[in-house]
Design a protein around this nucleic acid. Structure first.
Length: 105
DNA sequence: CTCGTGACGGTAT
DNA sequence: TATACCGCCACGA
């Protein structure tokens, strides 16, 4: 029960990302008080129960690319959702962090 | 307790 | 630009 505290912190932070914006794993980790633990953010999202209201699709890696193989179903789904929120992808399937990265303050 | 794993990030080559 | 490694550490076997 209590061990989910770390996950909850991550989930709460991800929930704050505004629609049409994205954040990197490292950024979420840092804001959640877990500086340098980007992998734990990915682990937490992987563990995310289906049907939750956490906008997991808004979390991408530092290179502005989705963390799934491009041929995977999950990859296409994440891209689809982000586009519906207004995030545009470049031809090489990357997102401009300069333009879409979420600012927390 | 040890070990492998991973929806990552940075640096080196 | 693309790989290859390594650091980091929660989690489960």
């Amino acid at each position: 029960m209590e061990k989910q505290n770390t996950y909850q912190r991550i989930y709460q932070m991800v929930k704050k990302i505004a629609p049409g914006k994205v954040a990197t794993y490292g950024q979420i980790a840092r804001l959640a008080g877990l500086a340098g633990h980007a992998r734990q953010v990915g682990y937490a999202l992987h563990n995310l129960p289906s049907g939750s209201d956490v906008p997991w699709q808004r979390v991408i890696n530092s290179r502005g690319r989705l963390s799934f193989p491009e041929e995977s179903v999950a990859w296409h789904m994440q891209k689809s959702i982000l586009e519906s929120e207004g995030v545009k992808f470049s031809e090489n399937n990357t997102i401009s962090l300069l333009k879409y990265q979420w600012k927390s303050f």
